[in-house]
Amino acid sequence: MTVIDTTGNLNDGDIRLSEASARDYWALLKPRVMSLVVFTAFAGMVLAPGEINPFIGFVAILCIAVGAGASGALNMWYDADIDAVMKRTATRPIPAGRITGQEALGFGLTLSAFSVCILGLVVGWFAAGFLAFTIFFYAVVYTMWLKRATPQNIVIGGAAGAFPPMIGWACVTGGVSIESVVLFLIIFLWTPAHFWALALFKMGEYGAVGVPMLPNVKGIPTTKVQILVYAVLTAVAGICPTLLGFASVGYGIVALALGLGFVWYSIKVQSMSETDEKMLPAKKLFAFSLVYLFAIFSALLADRAVLALLSAFGKGF
């Protein structure tokens, strides 16, 4: 039984009894994106020189994950109008009517403030400032401004998704360095090829909601060329850890193989016919791009683990 005081200023339309479940609020955090953020932030933390208490490291990752989730909730609040039209996003909690926009906005802002403050108090204010900037960049610069304004939206906006390993690095070192910038570049340069592959086979949906994705604005041929250019740049960035000396030659060989795979799938997209409705090469590139990013950061982590083991054995003898 709920008591509602109708003597106040509330109108009937303002009274709404929610049927939103905890799972709906979890969905607002974009858990799949959050998992990638957690993984790359963890990699940045492990690869950084220096030490961090494991529990403090866990809290740092938690804060970065919640901050990423908060920016996802803010993104869903602002994009509810276009989410409702696109098939891929129509079942999200706001367009589906399970959570109101105001609830999502409050949820996102609260989690943003909490994640930044806790990271600042527990780990350091440089990393916390970086997290706050990342949330701002994704929610305001990308979502509110670039996404609906320019076909270069995901190129510039992709920076928000590329910052987590730098934040993880900053949690350990208290700053940034060339190595953390390289980790940033791998994700930053990977994002356009990844998203434009998706945009190719979702052209109709993006066109329907007026989001100026590159294939809709500049056409498919231009998009294909840009995908290839960014795939090559990503492959080069992928081997930079070896070239700069903070990863082994073994990692470099794995990164080169993965990079060549990324370029090869991009070349297959070039030969895709414009009348091809299934766009299988674009779908395969999109799938491989996910494997690529996961594999490249896994390889960096494995490389660091092997070096640590070799170092431990070396000391033992």
Binding site: M1, T2, V3, I4, D5, T6, T7, L17, S18, E19, A20, S21, A22, R23, Y25
Partner: peptide
């Protein structure tokens, strides 16, 4: 003062949110 009785779905959702919180 009006009294509103929650539906089973609303009660279930509220209980789930409370537990999560």
């Amino acid at each position: 003062m009006d009294l509103i009785t929650l539906t089973p779905a609303q009660k279930r959702a509220r209980r789930g949110r409370n537990i999560a919180l």
